[in-house]
Design a protein around this nucleic acid. Structure first.
Lengths: 231, 231
DNA sequence: CATATGTTAATTGTATGCAATATTAGAAAT
DNA sequence: ATTTCTAATATTGCATACAATTAACATATG
């Protein structure tokens, strides 16, 4: 099936590049250079950028070009809080509807995380962690909710990656995963929801604390627009 | 400020037309006729369609054009279930964080619903109902979550409208609103969440029952792709 | 030296043309 | 009459050209 449009492939490529950290928040994505880089005209590039903009991945300001979104610390916290609520919902449903297939998928992903954590391989853990969370999304047996969850997960990946650098955070994360699995398997939807909520939100809180440089205050976001500039 | 691009205006216009029911699920949105209708070239039309596609409002299939999405009954149920979870989250946060402004906004919207319901004006209730729910989204004091909620609310509007036609449903809906408000004001986040969840999900369940033509089975969605065709 | 202003350069927005693909209509065969 | 294959038709995808707007820069002025 080689019937896929260029614009769609480009959308994927640009998204991947952003997720991989090749383009940092604040970087400009001008159509001409991207067109040259991918060996196409501006048209499919534009179409890809507009779609990514509609998905919230990047900011496309009329007449002023596209940049990788630079959320304020407050906004970032809100995004993590929303992620926490959505993942909670997935866990709640998963606890009620768990099937053997979904259980096995979560187990496999969890085992992979365990290995990566033991070896302190944060890059690998980052990948396995994504699979673990995706397995939970699917276990909700609500494919629409799962899609929404995964989309937001991707949008936050740039920030989560930074958070998972610390080694002890890796082990703590793994332990939380175990607790989540336990609750889902016990069919305790309430507990699964709160454990997932806390697991996700602690990342967001730690991250915005990190960005703010001070703990416990998420109101002051004046210094937000000063981050990353293109090389 | 007349600096807004055509593509953006078109996106809004097409979205409005879909929400207003001018284009029904399944209707084809071909670039040429839309271009003629709006007096522009295909380019900005294409850009608008691609953006709407990225937001999930319409389906753009490569080389096969765009159509207004035709969710299967199962998919529709999943969307309502997701809406229920997101609205729950909004209500839960609102119950914890309620401010006088947000309280007043909800009250105003609720009063408007009350009048429309008493008069049996379902078209008016439809509009006021949207405001009421939007007031709850904002009361969550998480603007990102509120945006997500509103976006999904818009996507479902075509289906909710049909549901609200019945008069007794109007009065029941209003009563549920009262209960939701009560729980939020009492600061009972748990109760607010479950009441909102049930309020939203009952719509989804009733609707998919309606689509299926049979109650209690949401598995058989074979007849899904048979709905609306362009005139 | 800082600020304002006018001109130039760079970038985005839209239109048009052509190529590639899908859809439809028609003819032929069963 | 129904099905299948082929050819005509229509529609989408991409490239290019031009127009409109913004950003950058130099120059003048306080």
């Amino acid at each position: 099936m080689y019937t896929m449009s260029q614009a769609f492939r480009l959308k994927q490529s640009i998204e991947d590049a952003v997720i991989a950290g090749e383009f940092l928040p604040g970087d400009r994505l001008d159509e001409a250079s991207l067109a040259e880089r991918f060996g196409v005209s501006r048209t499919p590039i534009r179409e890809a950028l507009l779609q990514l903009g509609a998905e919230g991945f990047i900011d496309v300001r009329p007449r002023r070009g596209a940049i990788v979104s630079v959320p304020t610390p407050t906004r970032l916290f809100e995004m993590f809080e929303t992620m926490a609520e959505i993942e909670s919902a997935c866990g709640r449903l998963a606890a009620r509807r768990l099937t053997p297939d979904n259980d096995a998928a979560m187990e496999t992903a969890h085992r992979a995380c365990e290995i990566a954590a033991r070896e302190g391989d944060s890059e690998q853990y980052y990948a396995d962690n994504r699979n673990f969370h995706e397995a939970i999304y699917r276990a909700s047996r609500n494919s629409f909710l799962a899609d929404q969850a995964f989309a937001l997960h991707k949008r936050l990946s740039a920030y989560r990656r930074i958070q998972l650098r610390a080694r002890n955070r890796l082990l703590q994360s793994l332990q939380e995963h175990a607790g989540i699995l336990e609750a889902i398997r016990a069919g305790d939807d309430q507990l699964a929801a709160t454990r997932l909520h806390d697991h996700v939100l602690v990342q967001g809180e730690r991250f915005s604390d990190m960005v703010l440089g001070l703990a416990g205050d998420r109101r002051s976001d004046a210094a937000a627009s000063k981050s990353g500039t293109a090389k």
